[in-house]
Design a protein around this nucleic acid. Structure first.
Lengths: 160, 160
DNA sequence: CTTGGTGCAAACATTTTGCAGCACA
DNA sequence: TGTGCTGCAAAATGTTTGCACCAAG
């Protein structure tokens, strides 16, 4: 059942990401899967759709719950297996915050991601710091290395 | 048995850190423990000594093995409990790299730490990027936040 | 029919916790 | 005598794997 028509992200959570993101990402995923001789199954499609609907960071657990809440029954194993596929397709990336479990996020702006983590409340704001790129590349060059990506976490407190 | 005399780091691994680091860190740890009504036990002292001898990053497991290899029998539970204490004393910090298990490192240069992670070999270089501080503080200010610390991971490939 | 995908449950690895006994104040 | 610390073993997490069955080319 490949190539099932792509649905609108009219699911549960706030549609935080632009709907038009769905098509390209599905396409990327399908292409990557095909290149590996793997299949674009309904489960995989639903998982990606659900991820796209998330605000930035999410956890495997959360994803599983949301899928269940939507009436899609997808097993834990399939979720984890699909997360791995999505990661190696470059569609999502691991983001480890503090000592907790794994978080993931869509890897859209591949410039690298900056997280502002409120140490009091645990709130996380995802943002970008484009000026870092130059700095980063200079540092790498000095080590004879080439930067492929980066992650910056800033632990903050509120001024309020 | 508080205040046991501080030994030289003449243990197993390469003495990578300056010996004079030992005193201050022990002192900080002792002070923090005392402030909480906790005790500076031989186990805790040995754990800190062993950590100081490590090259930058280490894992709980590694720490446990090294302690055992030195003939100090410290239980897993105590290691984990002590790591938490050291973390809240600001002596070590969590560094999560990729999808693997927790790594820790001494939090000496509290300016924040920069890791160069070779995606091919898994090698990790720890370094500093002082220019980032200003950038970081500006970003936080724009969000009405104050930066307390940061971590930067740069994923690299070798130019060789 | 062959290859890949799924769910389930069991297995795993890492970290945490409960508890009994110990040691110092 | 009480408070904290330890080791052990059990529990709790989060993630992975083995397996039997299903589905599509």
């Amino acid at each position: 059942m490949p190539l099932e028509p792509i649905k609108d992200p009219t699911n549960n959570s706030v549609p935080s990401t632009q709907p038009e993101l769905i098509e390209p990402l599905c396409a990327i995923f399908r292409r990557t899967l095909k290149a590996e001789g793997l299949k674009y199954t309904p489960e995989r499609a639903k998982i990606l759709d659900t991820i796209i609907d998330f605000d930035s960071l999410f956890e495997a657990d959360q994803l599983l719950d949301t899928l269940k809440a939507q009436g899609h029954s997808v097993s834990k194993a399939t979720v984890y297996r699909t997360l791995k596929l999505l990661e190696s397709a470059g569609i999502i990336q691991h983001v480890l915050v503090g000592r907790e479990q794994s978080h993931y996020q869509l890897a859209i702006g591949q410039t690298g991601n900056t997280l502002l983590i409120d140490v009091d409340t645990g709130d996380i704001i995802t943002t970008e710091l484009p000026e870092l790129i130059e700095l980063r590349d200079k540092l790498c060059a000095a080590h004879g290395l080439t930067a492929q990506a980066h992650k910056l976490q800033i632990f903050v407190t509120s001024n309020k």
